[in-house]
């Protein structure tokens, strides 16, 4: 929970990257999701990942971001690198570490698996950078304004996303209160086998859900009081997020990454196959 709050707070810091329009950052991020879909060349993927690490350093979130990624990378890559070689199509010309019945693990399969892992690394790094440099409330508000004014979509949807983030700390607080009250009644939550501990958590879920339902009714009443109308598409916004040169430059960075991918693919350097 503390980590979630820390991560959400990180987006409120001040730096060049933090001050870029949230929608522009979202577009850049979408580009960074498209890049690993387009190319599998491990060197290109590593270079782009390193660029994001440098950007993280510049935006003052390096310490927290690296700490998070160091824990996350092995889980993601480990799984891919171990599993992919078993699914890699076996051919007689590969260099096998072992080849028994339908089970095989070749050097080529391993390289392919590493490339697949690096695609995930790039995607994961871009997402973490985006979350840590963007205030999610600003993002929802900016997107809400854009969706309502340009696409004529009700503000209801951004509101639901934005409010979910706002209620995270409250839910966390309620959860800890319930746990503490169980502990004060001499319930030992931390000992026993996994199954025993899971069973102990079931009675925690009931009052938690019950208290959240009460909260839902309060939210509904406050929305009613503010005359919230799901069909209203002429809502005004307190804060505006106009696009500046800086925002366009940030989108341009994402577009450049995609252009690089197109060029690499046209030169046949975009795929990991050139190393196999």
């Amino acid at each position: 929970m503390a980590f979630v709050l820390q991560m959400l707070e990180m987006g409120k810091r001040e730096s060049w990257f933090h001050s870029v329009n949230p929608t522009a950052k979202l577009i850049w991020w979408v580009c960074m999701i498209i890049v690993p879909i387009m190319i599998t060349n491990p060197f290109a993927l590593i270079i782009m990942t390193v660029c994001i690490w440098v950007m993280a350093f510049q935006s003052g979130i390096a310490k927290q971001m690296y700490k998070f990624l160091i824990v996350t990378y092995p889980v993601m890559i480990g799984f891919i690198v171990i599993l992919w070689p078993f699914f890699y199509a076996a051919t007689p010309d590969q260099h096998y570490l072992f080849n028994w019945s339908f089970l095989h693990f070749s050097l080529e399969g391993f390289i392919y698996a590493l490339a697949m892992g690096l695609r995930i690394v790039l995607s994961l790094t871009a997402c973490t950078f985006f979350v840590m440099t963007t205030d999610l409330m600003d993002l929802a508000s900016s997107l809400g304004e854009f969706m309502q004014n340009k696409l004529h979509i009700s503000y209801m949807y951004p509101l639901m996303v934005m409010s979910s983030f706002k209620f995270l700390p409250e839910l966390g607080g309620d959860y800890f209160n319930i746990i503490e009250s169980f502990k004060s009644r001499a319930m030992d939550m931390d000992t026993g086998s996994v199954m025993e501990r899971l069973k102990k958590y079931v009675p925690v879920a009931i009052p938690l859900i019950d208290s959240m339902l009460r909260k839902a009714q309060n939210i509904a009443i406050s929305l009613e009081l503010k005359a919230f109308d799901t069909n209203n598409k002429s809502r005004t916004f307190y804060k505006h997020y106009p696009f500046t040169i800086r925002d366009l430059f940030f989108i341009f960075l994402g577009a450049v990454a995609i252009v690089v991918c197109v060029v690499l693919n046209s030169l046949n350097w975009g795929k990991v196959d050139i190393f196999l």
Binding site: M1, V4, V75, M76, G78, F79, I80, L83, M156, L159, M160, V161, S163, S164, F167, L168, L171, G172, L208, I209, M212, L213, K215, A216, Q217, N218, I219, A220, I221, L223, E224, F228, T230
Partner: peptide, 27 residues
Amino acid sequence: TLEIALTIIGAVLYGLGSFSTMSLAIG
């Protein structure tokens, strides 16, 4: 408004429930 509120609360519960057990990962 009540449906919106219930969606918000459900999303928080489900999201936090999923995120808090993120460490129990298989890839």
